[in-house]
Design a protein around this nucleic acid. Structure first.
Lengths: 162, 162
DNA sequence: CCTGAAAAAAACGGTTT
DNA sequence: AAACCGTTTTTTTCAGG
């Protein structure tokens, strides 16, 4: 955390950040009432968060099951000797079923989260991915923790432990 | 996809859904101009999406590195014979560093995404998680695909393939 | 799904500390 | 530099068709 950003992240700043993680469509006025500021002040704080790159976007979350993607899987993959990491990532970027992709250090090289309409669809997707490297697939049964807010507490906990 | 939801998911409905995934704070008026509807009509469409559970929320995304959580890891875990899945999930739910958790079918039982302030913090977190079962950890080096919109195309592709 | 009016919120500029 | 205040403009909301 640079000194530039920590100036923005006082108690009020964190309150705003947490509120927007919980409900990105809250109005500046209502948010202001929660944190004890007037709407334009809230607006200005948020603008600075965006400018600093602290807030990278606002996104609606959709229930994939209800829109036709009931199947999810987490796929770990290595890379064939012939496949460069950059080329593989570029290829994955063009596969819409790949919802997330992390480059990791460990047994595997990439870990993907994918969505599919059916088991058959998933099978075909796996075939397409096998081109780039060996896979280890795990079907998602449920998602007990879908998304957790980043709070000031997490970052403070480390300091008290240190 | 039930018949109840697919009535909402015509071409316009999908346009709205994709737009809100890209920018959850877009105004109804602006969204209406993109999809060829007037603001109240857009508002009503969105209300139905929320009512049907298709849109589950609107969330700001924060750059974890800039707010003090530069370290991320994906941790796969089994469960000790003595630990029930429900109890473990409840315990994980109280650990703020656990940002996501999926129950999976495969070699492992749970797959977590965690955030930490430092390597030391991550090490202590792993110690706390080890209580519940054996772990396999992979440090995240980068996230080439952070989040991809769910589009109509994905759900259609399967139909054309079938 | 559109129309039109009322209410609310956002955006803008100027002022204070 | 940051928050407040008041005004203008835009957006949202709600009635009815």
């Amino acid at each position: 955390m640079t000194s530039d950003t920590e100036r923005l992240l006082d108690a009020t700043g964190w309150q705003i950040l947490v509120a927007l993680q919980s409900d990105a469509r809250i109005s500046y006025s209502e948010l202001g009432q929660h944190v004890g500021l007037i709407a334009p002040a809230v607006r200005e704080r948020i603008r600075k968060f965006e400018e600093a790159g602290i807030i990278t976007g606002y996104h609606a979350t959709v229930n994939r099951r209800l829109v036709g993607l009931p199947v999810s899987a987490i796929i770990r993959m290595g890379l064939h000797a012939s496949e460069s990491s950059a080329a593989t990532i570029a290829a994955l970027d063009s596969i819409e079923e790949v919802l997330e992709c992390a480059r990791v250090m460990g047994t595997d090289t990439l870990i993907l989260k994918v969505g599919a309409t059916s088991i058959e669809h998933l099978e075909k997707l796996i075939d397409r991915l096998l081109v780039y490297g060996p896979l280890t697939s795990a079907m998602v049964l449920s998602t007990p923790i879908e998304r957790r807010n980043v709070t000031q507490a997490i970052t403070m906990q480390a300091q008290t432990e240190a």
